[in-house]
Design a protein around this nucleic acid. Structure first.
Lengths: 207, 183
DNA sequence: GCTTTAAAAAGTAAGAT
DNA sequence: ATCTTACTTTTGAAAGC
């Protein structure tokens, strides 16, 4: 009986220690990515649910923490790409994606694919673009979505192209290189997307 | 009318041609054969008769992949057995060949809204992460196949054991999308 | 889980020209 | 800027780490 009690204490200690480690990991990654407190708390909730459902078995704490943070960013509409999460995690992008799919399914998160619109605020601030440009970009994305120009395309690439166009239309031009860098895509992708958007949405780009 | 341009792109099959093989000998006799035990336990051998690739193991088991149809699988495996015999290696007479997987492509001839389809089929039944891959992944239980759905209306059906499975898979998708008014 | 094979879909990426 | 090559996803078997 005393043995059993001690065992419980050990398990409890291990569980608490692991949870503490996971939460510190979430905090460390969230800080590195400059994420607000609400996202960290959401990630903590997701992580705790995963623990309660024993989803950590056979998986690393760091992997589940990274996946929880990735999921939380999406739930809070301030998405980070798997590459961005991977940059502040010891776990590879592939493993984070795999773990995300698993907990997403097991916890029935039912998240819609990331919307390009959710990337606009972050990318625009990174380019020092005003709210007017953001609004323009969002409007372009709404029209793009209606004309089926976003299905199957990378959200960051489409968002980057919309911002590139918006910056020009608002007289605050940013180069493809600048936009590509903040969005984490190549200039070629921005070029391909913006050509398609300009053509299909009948937007005249002069310069 | 009932087509949708279904085309088989690849057939994977397995069989057993002998009780055991000396892969080192086969590698020496078959030009182009690759065998690096520490890299992979099987010997790799490509043929262009009907085009296909073989993975030959010491156990006598063989995997054939890359064939464009089921008949070609039987043809190339028969040719393979003959080549082994020519080299002085006896093989099992009528090997039991099992088709393990068939990959097919198809075209629904319609531009699709993958977000709408994701909701229509149910987020818990699909996987769609455009950040990672442009296709929506839909797993079907009835013919047990996996269908990759693209915004262009093109499809990839894989996991089927027969051409019928692939056709059924395409039909299931067509029907479900049609019933939801997404086609 | 990984290693190796083949193949399609469409997007994105990297290095070369 | 454009071309080529290549990687992302899915599937299945094989023997072994």
């Amino acid at each position: 009986r005393l043995r059993k009690w001690q065992r419980r204490i050990r398990v409890s200690n291990a569980t608490e220690r692991n949870l503490a480690f996971a939460l510190s990991e979430l905090d460390r990654m969230a800080s590195a990515l400059g994420l607000p407190r609400t996202v960290r708390e959401t990630a903590a909730v997701v992580y705790r649910k995963a623990v309660d459902k024993n989803l950590i078995r056979g998986r690393s704490i760091e992997g589940v923490a990274a996946a929880a943070l990735y999921a939380a960013c999406r739930q809070c509409s301030v998405p980070r790409t798997l590459d961005e999460i991977g940059e502040v995690s010891r776990v590879s992008r592939k493993e984070i994606g795999r773990t995300y799919r698993f907990i997403s399914r097991e916890l029935s998160l039912k998240l819609m694919p990331t919307s390009p619109i959710d990337y606009v605020p972050r990318f625009c601030s990174g380019l020092n673009l005003k709210g007017e440009v953001q609004s323009r970009g969002v409007e372009i994305l709404r029209q793009a979505s209606e004309k089926e120009l976003t299905s199957g395309r990378g959200p960051t690439g489409v968002a980057a192209a919309a911002i590139y166009i918006a910056s020009i239309l608002c007289g605050e031009r940013r180069t493809q290189r600048e936009v590509a860098d903040v969005a984490g895509v190549t200039e070629v992708t921005i070029r391909n997307r913006y050509k398609e958007l300009a053509e299909e949405l009948d937007i005249e780009i002069i310069l | 009318m009932s087509d949708y341009n279904i085309k088989i792109e690849n057939v994977v099959a397995s069989t057993k041609l002998a009780e055991e093989f000396d892969l080192t000998k086969i590698e020496a006799e078959f030009e182009g054969a690759e065998y690096n035990k520490q890299k992979f336990p099987g010997l790799v051998y490509r043929v262009s008769d009907p085009k296909a690739a073989f993975l030959v193991f010491t156990s006598g088991k063989v995997v054939c992949t890359g064939a464009k149809n089921v008949d070609d699988v039987h043809t190339v495996i028969g040719n393979m057995a003959q080549k082994l015999n020519d080299i002085g290696i006896k093989t099992i007479e009528n090997p039991e060949i099992t088709v393990q997987n068939i990959v097919a492509s198809a075209d629904l001839q319609a531009v699709l809204n993958l977000n709408a389809i994701a909701i229509g089929l149910g987020l818990e039944n699909i996987e769609y992460e455009p950040e990672q891959f442009p296709g929506l992944v839909y797993r079907i239980d009835d013919p047990k196949v996996v269908v990759l759905i693209f915004s262009s209306g093109k499809l990839v059906v894989t996991g089927g054991k027969s051409p019928e499975n692939c056709e059924q898979g395409v039909e299931v998708v067509r029907q479900q999308l049609d019933s939801m008014g997404l086609l």
